[in-house]
C-alpha cells in the first residue's frame, strides 16, 4: 500500500486516489496541429525511477496532486496540488 500524504487530508492509502499519469506532459493549445497532440497524448518517457505524475484524491478532497514518486520503490518524494494557484495559496497559508 502506497501511503500518500495529501496536502489537504493527511496521509491516506493510495486506494483512495485515482492515478492520472505522467505529470510532465504539457498539453498543446486546442488549436495546435495534430502532431503536437499525438506526441502529448501517446508518447511517454516511462521513467524507471523518480517521475512526476498526477493523482487525484477521488475518495477524499478530489484535488489533483502532482507527486514525485519512484516507480521502482514506490517511494514518494514530494506532493503538491497540481493547480499552481492552489499550491501557492496553500504555501502562503502555512
Amino acid at each position: 500500500m502506497i501511503r500518500i500524504p495529501c496536502p489537504f487530508c493527511g496521509e491516506r492509502d493510495h486506494s483512495e486516489f485515482g492515478y492520472g499519469g505522467d505529470g510532465t506532459i504539457v498539453y498543446p493549445a486546442l488549436d495546435a496541429p495534430a502532431e503536437e497532440w499525438v506526441e502529448a497524448i501517446f508518447e511517454r518517457e516511462n521513467i524507471c525511477g523518480v517521475q512526476s505524475e498526477t493523482w487525484q484524491h477521488v475518495n477524499g478532497c478530489r484535488m489533483w496532486l502532482l507527486i514525485e514518486r519512484n516507480t521502482m520503490t514506490h517511494e514518494i518524494q514530494s506532493v503538491r496540488p497540481a493547480h499552481e494557484g492552489v499550491a501557492k495559496a496553500l504555501e502562503e497559508s502555512k
Partner: peptide, 13 residues
C-alpha cells in the same frame, strides 16, 4: 466528473 476536474486543476488552471 473526474475529467472536468482534471482539466480545471491541471490544464486550464
Amino acid at each position: 466528473m473526474v475529467w472536468l476536474e482534471e482539466l480545471l486543476q491541471t490544464r486550464w488552471t
